[in-house]
Structures are given as C-alpha cells and as structure tokens.
Amino acid sequence: MKAEVILEVNSISKTFGGVHAVSDVSFALGKGEVLGIIGPNGSGKTTLVNLITGFVQPDSGKVIFKASDITGMPSYKIANLGLTRTFQVMRPYYSLPAFKNLIIPLNSPRVKKTRSGRLGDIDAVAIDILEEIGFERDARVPYKPAGSLPLGYLKRLELARCLALSPEVIICDEIFSGLSMSEIAGLLPLLEKLQMQGVTLVMIEHRLRELFRLADRVIVMNFGQKIADGIPEDVMEDEEVKKAYLGRERKK
C-alpha cells in the first residue's frame, strides 16, 4: 500500500558550532502512517523535530508539507497548517487550570477557521477534549491547576494541546519517557485511536516494545545521520543498527 505523501524531508542538515546535529537526513511520510524515530541519546532526533516544526532553522535542505515548502517558516504558521508536536520536556502552562491550557490552541487561526468562527462554549470544547484523552471529569481533574498534576496527566495534556488543533500530523517527542507501565498502557489506546482516525504520527521513542506495537516503519539515527529505514523487524536485524544502538543492549 502506497499512501499519498504528506511530509517530505529532503537532505536536511544543521550544525551547532561544528557539531553536526543533523546531517543530510531525508525521508518521506505517507498519510496515516505511524513512523518511529529511534537512536541513542544525542543522535539528533529532537533536533530533527525542531527542524521540521520550525523551532530551529536548517542550514540546508527542505521540508515539504502537503506539497508546499515550509522550510524556514515560523513555527506557529507550521502549527496552523496542521503539523504539530509535543515537547520532550513537558511545557504545560503551570499557572492555568488544565482545561484552560487548551484555550490557547483553540484560539489559533487554524481552529477558528475550521470551526467557521463559531466555537460555542470554548471551555466546554476544551473539557470535552480532555475527557476524551482520559481526564476524569467527575474527579474534577480538568479544573485542577496544571502545575499540580502528576506526570501521566501532563503527558496527556501535551497530547491534548496538539489534538485541540485538529492536526494532520503529530510529532510525539518521547511521550512514554518517565511513565510507569500502567500509565503507558493507558496512553497506548489513545495513540491507536488517533491512528485509526487517520492522523499521521511520528514518534520519537526509547521504549522500543511499545513503539513497535504502533509503528509501521522505523528510522534509526546515529550521530545525526539516518542509518536505517524500514519496517521494525528488518531494522532490528540491520547490522549497523545493532552495532550503533541495539547491539550494546544485547551484549548485557
């Protein structure tokens, strides 16, 4: 099955004062696909996300989203096109109640346009989104200040902030890291549901077992370069991948 390409990255590179954070990485992402990006710490995964979403400007290369060039576009415009991301270090608005965190994306031009200017009760929309993602309305969790929520909820809040934009592509930067097994078990069905709804997902992960349950395809990075690209089973067997990343784990 060859899906329509939604996001294309063409030989993108970025150096930070002599360090090649990302060098000459290319890949294409089909609509509805779930792509995993793995690699050892410092291999340039987060920088790649920052480059794609406009938080860092690339030195060379191109990013094409839905057949239009978005290289060098400010990050908020990219988000408005429907390409959004979560952050590895969560960035909730600590001083606001959880549901008020979603008022910000719900006020973006993208949402205002798609809802044709009439949002109705914007707070109710926010609470609905939170409930859908597992905030118990009865326990009044959506009304608690974001700063007082436990990690699992904060990760969901990160995802909810993306969902509020009704995006086409979500890039999740290590959404499972720091969560307990039960918290991950709660999060997986949500991602599977998104997958079913046809949202394209890019997941940066260290938790391979959980990732491989979802991912159709995996890219492996090391020292800023793409060293493998394929379905999870093939990638795991790749000699270079074993050497760079998985090999060390197996030696234990």
Binding site: T53, F55, P74, S75, Y76, K77, A79, N80, T84, R85, F87, R91, P92, Y93, Y94, S95, L96, N101, I104, P105, N107, S108, P109, R110, V111, R161, C162, A164, L165
Partner: peptide, 14 residues
C-alpha cells in the same frame, strides 16, 4: 501562557 511557556504557545499555532 506566553509568560509560562512561549515555546508551547508557538506550537499551538499562535
């Protein structure tokens, strides 16, 4: 929200 975290506001399309 900008005071709390401007990066997240950017990621929210604002």
């Amino acid at each position: 929200a900008i005071k709390d975290n401007d990066q997240a506001v950017k990621a929210s399309g604002i």
